[in-house]
Every structure is written in structure tokens, then in C-alpha cells.
Amino acid sequence: MNNIIKIDKVSKSYGSLKAVNNLSFLVKEGEFFSFLGINGAGKSTTINMICGELSKDFGSIEVCGEEVDGNNTSLKEKIGVVFQDSLLDKSLSVYDNLKIKASLYNITGKDFLDRYEELSKLFNLKEIEKQPISKLSGGQRRRVDIARAIIHNPSILILDEPTTGLDPGTRKSIWKVLNNLRKEKNLTIFLTTHYMEEAADSDYIVILDKGTTIAEGTPLELKNKYASDTVYIYNVDEENIKKLDKSYKKVRDGFKIIVKDLKEATDLIIKNKDLFKDYEVIKGKMDDVFLNATGYELEDE
């Protein structure tokens, strides 16, 4: 896979505040890439620099092989962005919002109608197309946001906390559409999120703190490095658990034993075959990865 975004030693300061500090990472074409960090870690600044909205102080940002300088219009046709806050024109209808955005990419007339039809089916827009944005629910707005961001068939879709505040059902349906788009159109997804279970499905993750990468890798690599696995064992006496000489915690119907990794879990189970009749091994979660890598608890906004 080719690199579609290449960030190389990029820095950006606001006065004395270093928002992004010597940041480097790669995003591959068609990849689902997650960019994590607490608020103020430098995620939005990096996104704004990738879009050409902000200038960098140092380093290089390449998108689709071109250096970003804010004026290259061809690059802007390759990127779609769903911003953290919905930036739709609230007094205009869903249809008008999409039509106006499409026209800024020179998609007009029949081309627009065809594309609108396609997106309308994908995001169920028909029933709400005449309604002003101000009358829509949060989930409906997000659907329109995403439809509008991909109206020009971009190669990269940047999603800045797209599902914050949405109910699980809506989040699930949005991800279903996005995953289909990835598979069918080889769309590269660049995601920032506070929901670690969303990031867990990524191909690659970069965790940012104070403008610098503090951890990166595939979800598995990160879990292996930063999160402990857990063995749950059920229907046994506490006396037997004590004999294992591992720290444990009582849970409903059993005990929870924290192990370093899967190897330690396997060794433990093999050594105590008679005891481990009813058990499960749970891999470390992305929440643990984030907590251990950054030292910060995540806030659900």
C-alpha cells in the first residue's frame, strides 16, 4: 500500500505553546487510521494542517504525494472532512446543503442528481431532504455531515470525533456505512475519537500527547505493549485461586486474574489444567492502552 499521508517532523506553535512538536507518522492508502489523544494533544491542529487550513512552522506534510501549502486545489478535491462540530448551514435544507457543497467541487446538474441519489440511499436522506438542518436530530445531522463530506468522492475522509454524543445504534449504523465505503471505494479513513472501541477496529493507531507521538502501532501491537490481559475463572473456590500465587479480584461467579500477556495466561492454564474448567481470557482493551500510554483517563464528551 502507498503512503497517502506523510507527516515528517512537523511542528506548530501558537506563541509559546507548542501545539505540535516534531510529529511524524504515515497513513497508508485505504487504511483505517486512528489518531488518538486527549483534548489539546494537537489532533485538531494536525488535521487543520493536513487540510491546508493552518500553516506549519517546520517539517513537511504530503498528501497524495503533494506538499500541502493551502493553495493546491487539486489536493482539496482528494480530502473530505467531518468536523467535530456540525458545520452545516442550519437554516438551509438537507438537499440545499448537499447541493451547495457539491457545486463548490463543480458537481452540478445531472452529475449532482446522480451523486445525491447515491448518497441519499446510503444515508437514508430522502425522508429528511426538505427539512432544515436546525430541525434534525444529532444522528440525522451527522449522516448529512458525512454525506456532504464525501459528496466529491474523496480519497481520504477525515473524521474528527464523528460519533461524539450519538446513541450506540446511530454510531453502529454510521460505522456500517463507513466500513462499506472503505471496502468498496478504498477510502482512507483518518479518525480521531474518544471512543476506544471505535479505534480498536483500526489498521493503525497513533497516540499523541503534547503534540508528539507517544505510542503507535496496530491495535494488537499496542494492546500487547500497553494493556494487560485478563483471565476470568468461574465456579472455583477462593482457596484454590490463592494457591495460584497471582493477584486476583473477586467478580460475580468467579475471579479475575490479571496476567502480563497471553503467554503468561497460557502457562497458567496449562500448569493448572484441573482448575481451569470454566474460564475465558480477555485481551487488554484500547482503553487500557490509552490509559497506560498517556497516563490520562479518557473523558466521554
Binding site: 487540510c51 491546508g52 468536523f83 458545520l87 463548490l104
Partner: peptide, 14 residues
């Protein structure tokens, strides 16, 4: 003020 301009600025329009 409402940051709508960001959404316009990311389009290929000068």
C-alpha cells in the same frame, strides 16, 4: 464565529 468558514475553506475555492 460558527466555524462554517472552515467547511468552505477545505473546498477547492480560492
Amino acid at each position: 464565529a460558527e466555524k462554517t468558514i472552515k467547511d468552505i475553506n477545505i473546498t477547492p475555492i480560492s
